[in-house]
Write a protein that binds this DNA or RNA. Structure first.
Length: 265
DNA sequence: CGGCGGGCAATG
DNA sequence: CATTGCCCGCCG
């Protein structure tokens, strides 16, 4: 069993994490092979990649605590992954004009992979999405990635949720594009947190029972303007972009305080 | 209309 | 593994 996991680890994360595998991540990898010895993790310890959170402040779950939540650091984004849904619960990025200009020259890698840093029982596999009728929808978009390593990492299934195909390539792509457009014109860094919202009786896909979200959200926070807003989109083929919702409304709908202690005008 | 960004599947 | 072709929606 442990040999299988070690082999999978070697095979499916080929040099993607050049020199930036954090101590935290290493602990998670080691722990994966002996999960019973793992202590309960704090809700979200992103010690090694706090730079993706405004003011270094990590979201706080007000109501329910996410089951089997594991923080994962990547070169250009941070994921709080759930071993229950086999999806991220949220993905945080910091983008600005410079990073997006670099990203504009990057080619999509399109190499999706199961993230071997997660225990097999807690992660989505490529087969789960195949023939499911759902697309593998990026939370941190590939088009935001400023270098080849970040681009490759963005195709981790830990950064994906099952998404209605036309939702993904239609209105959702528009939300991503609008967010890039805003950050291109902003005076400094813009912090973005993207994630799914699940119904209690959510559909699941594949042998690993990856949960299908009912809604997707994308929170945008500009610390210079001290403004925050969120896009909210139902995960259906018919969904259309509506007016963004206020930050407080997003907190109410998700039960997550994404920007604790930060000033929002 | 073409280009771009979101995907898919088949082929060696 | 990379390449190729294809679909979709949006935008200039």
């Amino acid at each position: 069993m442990q040999q299988t996991k070690s082999k999978a680890l070697i095979n499916s994360v080929p040099r993607l994490f050049s020199g930036r595998i954090t101590a935290l991540v290493f602990i998670l990898i080691s722990g994966a092979a002996q999960a019973k010895l793992l202590p309960t993790l704090p809700p979200a310890d992103f010690t090694q990649c706090k730079q993706f959170f405004a003011g270094g402040k990590v979201p706080v779950f007000q109501a329910r605590s996410p089951a089997k939540a594991r923080p994962l650091c990547y070169d250009a984004f941070a994921v709080l992954h759930s071993g229950t849904t086999r999806t991220p619960l949220y993905v945080a990025e910091r983008i600005n004009k410079s990073t997006l200009q670099d990203a504009a020259g990057e080619k999509r890698s399109n190499r999706f992979f199961a993230d071997a840093r997660l225990p097999a029982s807690e992660r989505a596999a490529l087969d789960d999405y195949k023939g499911s009728g759902y697309a593998r929808g990026h939370m941190a978009p590939a088009a935001n990635m400023a270098n080849p390593e970040a681009m490759a990492q963005s195709f981790s299934l830990a950064n994906m949720v099952p998404q209605a195909p036309r939702n993904n390539s239609g209105p959702w792509a528009g939300i991503e594009k609008a967010t890039r457009k805003y950050a291109m014109r902003a005076s400094g860094d813009v912090y973005v947190i993207t994630g799914p919202v699940f119904d209690e009786s959510a559909e699941v896909i594949g042998p690993n029972r990856v949960r299908v979200p009912r809604y997707l959200f994308k929170l945008v926070y500009d610390p210079v303007a001290q403004r925050a807003w969120a896009h909210w989109l139902e995960n259906t083929e018919q969904a259309r972009i509506g007016r963004p919702i206020e930050y407080a409304e997003l907190v109410r709908r998700t039960g997550i305080e994404f920007l604790p202690g930060l000033t929002i005008r």
